[in-house]
Amino acid sequence: MIAEIQQAQRVETVKHSHQKSGVAARLQGASKNYENVRALDNVDFDVRTGELIALLGPNGAGKTTTVKLFLGLASPDSGVVSVFGGNPKSPQTRMRSGAMLQVAKVPETMRVREHIDLFRSYYPQPLPTQEIFAIAGLKDIQNRLFGDLSGGQRQRVLFALALCGDPDLIFLDEPTVGMDVEARRALWEQIRKLVARGKTVLLTTHYLEEADALADRIVVINKGKIIAEGTPAEIKKKTSGQMIRCISSLHIETVRAIPGVLEVKSDRESFEIRTAAAEPVLRELLIRDSTLRGVEVTNAGLEEAFLALTAENHKNL
């Protein structure tokens, strides 16, 4: 039994890597302006068949714009967008893709199963209703009105809508926004299963953790430009770093001189020290200041990571 499963998994992996050679969707030199804002600036990138690609960036980076171009909800001002080698606006393309978008308000006086029933009718070969319920965890809430659902349940319904057509390519725009940790992890599990079934997934997120947990490849985007691209390990390496917060009577210049310190900010006695690795710096700090207190070490957040990446980007230019 176990051997069988392993065999199946091996077959799955082979199929998986084979499919990665194709391109499911492509942006070529795509730019998009909204009034005075340059949402996307000459962006090139491919979504490869069978991969889970995460588009990582802060709010306003151009993630949603990219998704909208792929879905044919917006047209680029210049450049080319193609999905399955064709026009993203054609019904044929749309029948093969699914989307979970950020929606401020979904019709609230429709039941969950009614929403699903309606969306299934749009597709030639929809996923069976029970399967959709099972994947998105809607079985127990199928008769509830959308307006009576919690934030996490609403997200699950939107996720289910993206799956109704049993699409080959799935766009998930910030799918876990408003979800608690447990719900988020449950959704991650379902997203992984989609990829295991050979689906191609493009996910946008502003959580490095989420991109790291799910993606085969991460594309980091900021201010409409791609600033880094690679496997999660490669991206994390570029964005690694730790932040030490402490209260110390040391002079700021003394702290700055400690080897390994990248950046220091101080407000009277409280310090914020950015470093590649916290331990050696901490050791030095403790030796030099026996009254050191309130020590707190955190991994660099995404904000710091973006600063690091953008700084690197400037250096390369």
Binding site: M95, K105, C164
Partner: peptide, 12 residues
């Protein structure tokens, strides 16, 4: 409020 976009992204 975004709902029409979800529908327009589908083949409806």
């Amino acid at each position: 409020l975004g709902w029409l976009q979800v529908k327009r992204a589908s083949p409806m």
